[in-house]
Amino acid sequence: MSKVMGERPKALLDVPLHYCPGCTHGIVHRLVAEVIDELGIEGKTVGVASVGCSVFTYNYFGCDMVQAPHGRAPAVATGVKRARPDNVVFTYQGDGDLAAIGMGETVHAAARGENIVAIFINNAIYGMTGGQMAPTTLPGQVTQTTPYGRDTSVAGNPIRVCELLSSVKGVALAERVTVDCVKNVKAAKKAIKKAFEYQMAGKGYCIVEVVSTCPTNWGMAPGEALQWLRDNMLPYYPLGVYKDVGEEGEQ
């Protein structure tokens, strides 16, 4: 007798994803979709796709989707949420989108306590355009546009987004997770679920930063990339809860 051990979440459409082998986008997509299923909110959820590797998320999620200009997903999500406060609204953004071109929109959406969820994929590189330096690229990290390694005296320092947003009043949840192993995948899902629940309770802006890999542009095999993440990314971007207003909400 064969037994179905796990099915595709309903909120994830039955289409092939375009992501590279070993990319963690697929895992995060699945987690978001599982949360949407478990909360039974697909019918009232609107997702906002950004620009970067995740630009095609509008083809993958079963909920209504709108695609935003580069960096503007928080503003587009604000428009959707203000027009339809009963909808659940989330953005799905990479590090270039959220922390470089869209930092202004991000900080201000957060400061307004905009009732939206931001799923933030931090893989320290621009994937879609072929591996250029991101605002989260580590010091010394080689990318297409930092061929000698990121020299912080020239190219500036990587931004720790959760730490930064944790100081902003209006943020209900800022949590950094990763998906390198089963334990961490479970923790990541818990954080994503909490973010959606907080939105439904009207608590404010929630961001879940997922420290991710980009095997292709890092030039590594998937397993190697996960190890590089543990060895290099996590020390600079420690996992944890940076802000959580809890049951009571912000005081």
Partner: peptide, 23 residues
């Protein structure tokens, strides 16, 4: 809804979001 955005860049994208939501 009246919302003062952080820039014209943000305000037009809020317009995109609300317009996409059908209002």
């Amino acid at each position: 809804v009246y919302l003062q955005a952080e820039s014209e860049v943000a305000s037009i994208n809020m317009v995109l979001g609300a317009g996409a939501a059908g209002v």
